[in-house]
């Protein structure tokens, strides 16, 4: 009987349960993960033993003093850095890149100057399966449609065939977001993506990123210096101590979505901001030697 049940087609209820359990799955898990760069006397501890679990579909912001190891956590999740101690599990496996489709964006948009914006955006499709093996065949036109649809979502309609140097910094950063999302990643890693932009462009891009997240629902890990940005975008904010970093505060952000820029000036939001600020100020003061060089 039990055997038969397992092979029966999934009922609607079972399918929903399966979807819910997938939603509750852990996308990124750091267990006592520590990172030390260099060896012997010149070894520098970048990250203390850190515990972090990010459920699938969550939007987590990492804030903290500069040089505290925020980016190191991001690189651990991307599989670019191996932990010196502890375990990093992404998408249920230890080797990051193969288990889960990952999209990444940095402060520097790094568009390739010899490609048009749409070609730049489509770059991940040339690399990630299953798109990669379809790229040279009939699917190329549909890939272009996909790129155009994403570019439209970030307000770059009509710029697809321009070259990167014809676009402003804010426009390049929009294209950078598109490149990070084109292959429908389950995990989106953002390292200060809006750090080099002016305040107005930045706020506009927050809203765009929120919209993209609401549509695609990837798990997001966002490293930022901007506390308003963290509060506006994230479901959850982790505060880190000074180098060698560890997570000293981990709190949920409950504001309803879609959030608005006006919301960031309301008392509740300002209070959250103030609390984060105090935590980081204390963390900076507690640092043994403020050598930020």
């Amino acid at each position: 009987m039990h055997f038969v049940m397992m092979h029966a087609p999934l009922t609607a209820i079972e399918a929903e349960t399966a979807a819910r359990s997938r939603a509750a799955a852990i996308a990124v898990e750091l267990s006592a993960a520590a990172v030390t760069f260099g060896q012997g006397e010149r070894a520098v501890a970048a990250l203390q033993a850190t515990e972090l679990r990010i459920p699938d579909g969550e939007f987590v912001a990492l804030v903290g003093p500069s040089g505290c190891g925020k980016s190191t956590i991001l690189k651990l999740a991307a599989g670019l850095v191996r932990p010196s101690a502890g375990v990093v599990v992404v998408g249920g496996r230890e080797v990051a890149a193969k288990a889960l489709r990952i999209g990444m964006a940095f402060q520097n948009p790094t568009m390739l100057p010899w490609l048009t914006i749409e070609q730049n955006v489509m770059l991940p499709l040339k690399i990630v399966e299953p798109y990669r093996s379809q790229f040279r065949r009939q699917r190329k036109a549909s890939f272009r449609d996909k790129a155009h649809a994403l570019l439209a979502q970030v307000g770059l309609t009509g710029f697809a065939t321009r070259y990167p140097w014809q676009l402003s910094g804010g426009m390049l950063q929009r294209a950078n977001l598109c490149r990070a999302l084109i292959h429908e990643p389950r995990l989106l890693l953002l390292d200060e993506p809006f750090g080099a932009l002016d305040q107005f462009t930045r706020e506009e891009l927050w809203s765009i990123l929120q919209d993209l997240w609401l549509v695609h629902r990837p798990t997001v890990l966002l490293v930022t210096h901007d506390l308003r940005e963290a509060g506006f975008l994230a479901n959850r904010i982790c505060v880190m101590s000074a180098r060698p970093g560890r997570i000293i505060d981990d709190s949920a952000v409950a504001f309803a979505r879609p959030r608005t820029i006006a919301m960031t000036f309301e008392p509740d939001f300002v209070a959250l901001n103030q609390r984060l600020r105090d935590l980081i100020t204390d963390a900076r003061r507690a640092a043994p030697a403020p050598s930020e060089a």
């Binding site: 690189k75 599989g79 670019l80 990070a180």
Partner: peptide, 14 residues
Amino acid sequence: TEPELEDVLKALGA
């Protein structure tokens, strides 16, 4: 080659 771009591509499994 810009290190950031290399990171982006490596994270894709390039």
